[in-house]
Write a protein that binds this DNA or RNA. Structure first.
Lengths: 169, 169
DNA sequence: GTCTCTATTTATAAGCG
DNA sequence: TCGCTTATAAATAGAGA
């Protein structure tokens, strides 16, 4: 869909390849977004650029979670803070952004694997040997998810006194 | 892009929603395939249907691995087998298909997480506390990948005598 | 790497079997 | 749920800044 029809094969020119990657990644993520909204389904995409940089798309989005987090926290703590607490929260949240993104992405992928494994277990009960392995993997994943959740909770607890002005009221 | 323009919001009719999901999932996976070929980049997608069924796309594809596996094994063992060994191999491979798919998908996702964690480690060395957690996660992932590889190897070894007519020459 | 422009190709909404 | 058809909306190749 362009000035000319192109064959689907590796683009030789590295500049063209990079430009096309950028354009098509945008298109792919847009399609994924539309699918998730139209059909109310969860979608996760991970893609590596020609330069090996990872990009990911997920619905529900990180922003949704961050917004919920912010609203929840400011509701329960705003009375203790200065009038600019919401702005402070925003600044802090931005500082935490990268880490939160990391943890959220990890958690999301873990959750997806978890659900997928449950599905597999349901539909392949006859594959006993393989399921033993999968069950073990599932336990490890569960432990991993718990660990991520603990880490996330710790982050919130450690950052809250600064973020939300506790002990300053 | 159809007879009428539609708004991007949840489709209320569940039948329309399912049909649209099916069509757009196909489109999304096609786009992902084209991106992976044109730009030589790895892509992984997981999506859940309105009925909560998981679907996934990945490049390089499962078929690539299965084909390589089949060729490699038939080259080194075909002399020992009957003339219909290739067909037998195909039948056997199909029987193994579901399990292989599972293991391959798990391995691929693990690998993606692993690379992603490496990237994060490189670009966020200053976030020490969080990295301690990530490092732990990474070790667990590594163990998980090793475990999957072992399981896969065991599968190959256990199935080969039947698949490739060893002890029948 | 990004953005714009636009001719063209591609995806798909609606409808039918 | 699938396949097919067709009118139309949307994505994008190529080129330039």
């Amino acid at each position: 869909m362009g000035r000319k029809k192109i064959e689907i094969k590796m683009l030789e020119d590295s500049n063209t390849r990079q430009v096309t990657f950028s354009k098509r990644k945008t298109g792919l993520f847009k399609k994924a977004y539309e699918l998730s909204i139209l059909c109310g389904s969860e979608v996760a995409i991970v893609v590596f650029s020609p330069g090996k940089k990872p990009y990911s798309f997920g619905h529900p989005d990180i922003n949704t979670v961050a917004t919920k987090f912010l609203q929840q926290e400011s509701n329960s703590n705003s009375a203790l803070c200065s009038s600019s607490s919401k702005d402070s929260n925003l600044v802090r949240l931005n500082q935490l952004g990268e880490v939160m993104d990391q943890l959220y992405e990890e958690e999301k992928r873990g959750a997806i694997l978890d659900v997928a494994l449950h599905q597999h277990k349901k539909t392949q009960l006859d594959k006993v040997k393989q399921l033993h392995h999968l069950a073990e993997l599932r336990c490890k994943l569960k432990a991993r998810i718990d660990e991520i959740e603990v880490a996330e909770t710790m982050l919130k607890i450690k950052e809250q006194p600064v973020v939300f002005c506790k002990n300053h009221a």
